[in-house]
Design a protein around this nucleic acid. Structure first.
Lengths: 194, 194, 194, 194
DNA sequence: CATGAATGAGATTTCATTCAT
DNA sequence: AATGAATGAAATCTCATTCAT
């Protein structure tokens, strides 16, 4: 006896987030239906709505949880002197954050159009600009500003685009970080483009 | 009479592609419905099906048309000697191609998850790898390979992410190209990371 | 052969309105689902959406069609001299209109709370006030204004509440009209309440 | 300590009824969800189920409580001689009852379709017929019976429809009552319509 | 006296697609 | 070259209700 009624554990909310992120990252936000999520969790769709107000809310909650380190990083960065050393440290920490929440960032990378007009869209844009502003100098020549953007793109895209290149993941991560650091270093040097 | 230049005559197919691309780029592929497209064109949904077999087919046809220059570029590139000069030329031509079909590439950039499992997904991946392989050396140290990827990411993302930075678009384009060229140049130099 | 595919006649829109009104009047607006309507018509739910944008739109279209006579009556009434004779004629014509579109008016009578915050709510309120203003004199003593309201309520409610009283429907209709006429006559007489 | 008059103590049942009636009257029965009620009370939905068996039961309990005076009135009326004086008194008392439980009666007025097939539907119909039977004479000409119905409709609808007419509420109430009394007086007079 | 967690049923709506005309 | 009418499948979401604790 007591076969079917599984012991409703208190971690359902977390499990929803986990499964949702997994599917969102795999298939995209719109192609992932709540039915799919609930079936994978073996609960009803309505159960999702007990824990989250909307589908969008599920994503928002995931983002808020997993993006915290980046937020903290920005806050930290703003308090530091704007030296090259600081910038390198920021890149290093960011690389770390990206790696730790890889599925979220992969998702954001691959679903920009979708995410753009979700409620988190504005937030995300803000975070990215916040980051860029820690490493670029708005007075610098355009090319140096591009280098700073490029450093971030490289880290973002590098995480996922290098899957097909073989080599140890940690090595690849370091290589990506190094390229980013190079770019920022060049951008930081005065008269960098002569 | 009939001085109003009734612009429908055989060009419906083209108009569908134009409107579709505009909406796909603006809102994303899934959030753009055939109803929306047909309403903007002032035809019925069924008319779309006279010209295209499926929604996906509309996108595929757009891609095929607008991506041709890139395809040609790859073919051309393969016939050239693998010198730094060639690589620079490829980047320059690619920059040009990206600019000329900006909405398409913006769309691809922002809808990766969607595009990935559409029929064009594999094609796209192939094109990108084809491009990368024109400029990177698979025997080179990982960091140089990353630089090559980075050069391409920079051009892709640079097109759209720099909208908020002020400055003349053509200047920005040149700056982006220069950064990409720098990256490839560094990657090309033997012993680039010592 | 040719058994199932019924010859899609061009009157589906009308049939939807008919069935919808019938069910709305019988069960109320909210308790009538689109599933129910479509099943009774032997079409799919989606077919309803080909003809109407929303559930509310179905009701609105019914209202617009069937309420036209009342609208015309108000227009007509406004052009007449504000004599007792005119008022009597208005009541007579209104009684007629109510009878001819009985299900609609029964529905409105019994679903006031629902209808109130549908898009037609404001319209309906306007029509009723338009009617009242044809027969009451805003300068008259309150009691006479009440008599005018009462005349209208009587006709509205009388239509449906008298079902249980036996007698010929046409006789009942005449009796209701007569009571309404009496009320308005009393209200019209100067010094009616001494 | 404990000076703040913690108002929850055994009165939850009452508070549920109050809030429920308020929302039912404002928005209608179906458009008011138990979630809404419980949120407004700052308790959980499950708490409602501790006090009431079903949503319908909440309404039924409200009705039973607030309709008692009407019930008593009917009982009292049945013991009185069927004189005009008695009828007038009944109308006066009914007017009073309607005013005292205005939200309930407004609710019933505006949600007839809903209430009709709830369990209280039959009860309500019974009460109304009970009232009508105190003032009409089933042997009288139809027109006089209509006058009696009309007197009641007038009181019911008058309560809410006159909101837009300006004037002191108590004055309006008296005017409505007077019209009703007039109607019943006319109905009572033998040979009233010659 | 009440909550936290969940369910089953069902609602409205949207979409890509089809096909006779 | 295109339309009018419809469909089947699915999506998101809401609701009244239950029950162990």
């Amino acid at each position: 006896m007591s076969s079917t009624p599984q012991p409703r554990r208190g971690n359902t909310r977390q499990r929803i987030q986990d499964v949702a992120l997994e599917l969102f990252a795999e298939q995209g936000y719109e192609k992932t239906s709540l039915r799919e999520i609930s079936e994978k969790l073996d609960v009803t769709k309505a159960a999702l709505y007990y824990h989250f107000k909307t589908k969008e809310d599920i994503l928002a909650s995931i983002f808020e949880d997993l993006n915290r380190p980046v937020e903290d990083l920005i806050v930290w960065g703003r308090e530091q002197p704007r030296t090259l050393e600081t910038k390198k440290e920021i890149l290093a920490r960011y690389s770390d954050a990206l790696t730790k929440a890889a599925p979220l960032f992969r998702f954001m990378q691959e679903n920009q159009a979708t995410v753009r007009d979700l409620s988190i869209g504005a937030t995300i844009k803000g975070r990215i600009l916040g980051l860029v502003d820690l490493i670029r100098d708005p007075e610098a020549p355009i090319i140096d500003q591009v280098r700073c953007f490029s450093a971030l793109f490289t880290m973002h895209a590098g995480m996922f685009a290098l899957k097909d290149v073989d080599g140890d993941p940690e090595d690849k991560r370091k290589a990506v970080l190094e390229v980013a650091v190079d770019l920022v270093t060049q951008a930081h040097a005065p008269g960098s483009d002569q």
